[in-house]
Write a protein that binds this DNA or RNA. Structure first.
Length: 272
DNA sequence: CAGGTC
DNA sequence: ACTGG
């Protein structure tokens, strides 16, 4: 089985951090679906063994191309993040297919990871081309028959997802990766069901914008606590503070704090 | 109550 | 405001 170098990389932590939903445990590794490929990955020391795709695809998907040493150095400039970093240094920012990422995070509002994963898998099973037995690629945007999404049980997110399937041009979506930050963000927010939080998720987890910082309820709590004496402030100020502090590593800082607070790590103290 | 949006 | 854990 081919393998690639991934020193210090934590596959389990990265996959379970809620950036990407098309994965499941598979033996002593994971099975992932991205961009028409079924990838089987297994951590082996400081390497990742892989089957089903190219090394370049795996490296890009898992965020292994980034200079992680430089990223960690940037994160350590903040003493409070430095305190929790030892436990989360293996986190990477993934770069998945933008269309799948967009639909996933539109499904994510007021939901939870298990349900989001079920919604995304359901859409793939119902409408996506089969790749292997029982494993389907995610379908590209196309006009879906009225009511076709009903069995997916998206609730009030259904009309947003239907709107995305009707309107999104994947090539245009990909092209946003080359646009300036504010322009890409504004373009995404034109889409149905996409507000600031979802827009920055798509930018961070699929378009390569390391300075993106999705502010959800958890990051709002952390940001207020860290920098605003626990006062209410607009989400935009929290995101801008992450960017001012961590620059193009804001997305990684956000993802580490997100995971840490969900693990119950107290903000502003070293983890036990 | 859950990683918001209109 | 849907829906499910």
């Amino acid at each position: 089985m081919p393998s690639l170098a991934a020193p210090g990389f934590d596959l389990d932590l990265t996959l379970r951090s809620g950036q990407f939903f098309r994965f499941r445990p598979d033996g002593d590794g994971f099975l992932l679906v991205d961009s028409g490929r079924v990838l089987r990955l297994r951590p082996q020391g400081d390497r990742i063994e892989y089957r089903g795709g190219t090394a370049a695809h795996v490296r890009r998907l898992l965020g292994l191309d980034a200079d992680h040493g430089a990223a960690l150095a940037a994160l350590r400039r903040d003493p409070l993040l430095a305190a929790v970093l030892p436990r989360y240094a293996g986190m990477r920012i993934m770069t998945q297919d933008p269309w799948v990422c967009l639909v996933s995070f539109v499904c994510s509002s007021m939901s939870n990871m298990k349900r989001i994963q079920g919604n995304v898998e359901g859409i793939a099973r119902a409408f996506g081309p089969a790749l292997e037995d029982g494993i389907h690629d995610f379908p590209g945007p196309a006009a879906l028959p009225a009511g076709a999404l009903a069995p997916i049980r998206l609730g009030w997110r259904e009309r947003f997802v239907a709107g995305l399937f009707a309107r999104v041009d994947p090539a245009r979506l990909h092209a946003l990766a080359a646009r300036p930050f504010e322009e890409a963000r504004a373009a995404l927010m034109e889409l149905p069901g996409v507000g600031p939080k979802v827009a920055e998720c798509v930018m961070a987890f699929s378009l390569g914008f390391g300075e993106a910082c999705p502010v959800d309820v958890w990051i709002r709590r952390v940001g207020r606590r860290l920098w605003f004496r626990n006062r209410r402030v607009p989400d935009r100020r929290i995101a801008d503070r992450f960017r001012a502090t961590f620059g193009r590593h804001a997305a990684l800082a956000q993802q580490i704090w997100f995971q840490a607070v969900r693990d119950g790590v107290p903000v502003g103290q070293a983890p036990r």
